[in-house]
């Protein structure tokens, strides 16, 4: 007879990993999306648009040219800001969560890493990386479908929406879009208020709706809401 006993339990370390897994997965997805938009400008409009990308992203512009930026930002494992490094950080968290997120979810990260490595060897540019975006979308589908423990799912999604809002603020998206995401973020609370810092949470809300949401304090409050 199959055991019905539930072995639910999340340590604070595990909660932290779930949160950062969500953040890194969203960062990979969104960085590629934003990069495509800037790259489009770089083709025939503004070759140095990558500088604007670095500034908004909050990363150092250490690149010698547009070509050097693309090569390094995508594939350079020595570059702490690169996409391949984001994927490795995502994997570093996720690989320690297999029993929570399930092997299928984890596999999309491995597929993305394998693909990045082979793309680097083949000298593929940004245009060849739609597969990475597809892997991240598949990962989110798997999170939704395969993770049955509500709290686990919500912590990952909380990380996802924090990252998503962070990038939306940095890249000057409209307040409407950000508020939409904020509503999704709040859905992740589900009574688990102890996981979140109320003071930071209300300070962030005020920044969004009363003060200037483009103020740098907004990001600071947002990034400190999760406290596990």
């Amino acid at each position: 007879m199959e055991s019905t006993k539930k072995n639910d339990g999340i340590s604070s370390v595990k909660a932290g990993r779930l949160y950062w897994m969500g953040r890194y997965a969203e960062r990979v997805y969104h960085a590629l999306h934003l990069l495509r938009k800037h790259y489009d400008r770089m083709i025939d409009e503004e070759p140095n648009a990558y500088k604007d990308f670095c500034f908004k992203m909050g990363i150092a512009d250490q690149y010698t040219s547009a070509e050097n930026f693309i090569e390094s930002y995508l594939y350079d494992s020595e570059n702490p800001d690169s996409i391949i490094n984001m994927l490795e950080h995502l994997n570093d968290n996720a690989i320690l969560l297999r029993e929570e997120i399930k092997s299928e979810t984890l596999s999309y990260i491995q597929l993305a890493i394998n693909y990045m490595k082979s793309s680097k060897m083949k000298g593929k540019g940004l245009g060849g990386l739609q597969y990475i975006t597809d892997c991240m979308l598949a990962l989110w589908g798997s999170v939704d479908e395969r993770i049955f423990t509500r709290q686990v799912r919500h912590i990952i999604l909380f990380g996802k929406f924090v990252e998503c809002i962070d990038l939306h603020i940095r890249f000057d998206y409209s307040l409407d879009r950000i508020n939409n995401l904020y509503d999704r973020l709040k859905e992740c609370f589900y009574g688990d208020y102890e996981l979140f810092d109320e003071v930071q949470f209300y300070a962030f809300e005020k920044q969004l709706n009363i003060y200037n949401y483009k103020d740098s304090k907004t990001l600071a409050f947002l990034n400190n809401i999760f406290k596990a």
């Binding site: 055991s3 539930k6 072995n7 339990g9 999340i10 340590s11 604070s12 297999r98 029993e99």
Partner: peptide
């Protein structure tokens, strides 16, 4: 369907073992 634990996740008190969860 069991928990994967690391040494820091467990503690012994009054000769019983406990898993240190959230909060």
């Amino acid at each position: 369907g069991v928990l994967l634990a690391y040494a820091d996740d467990l503690i012994v008190e009054d000769d019983k073992v406990y898993y240190k969860g959230l909060y």
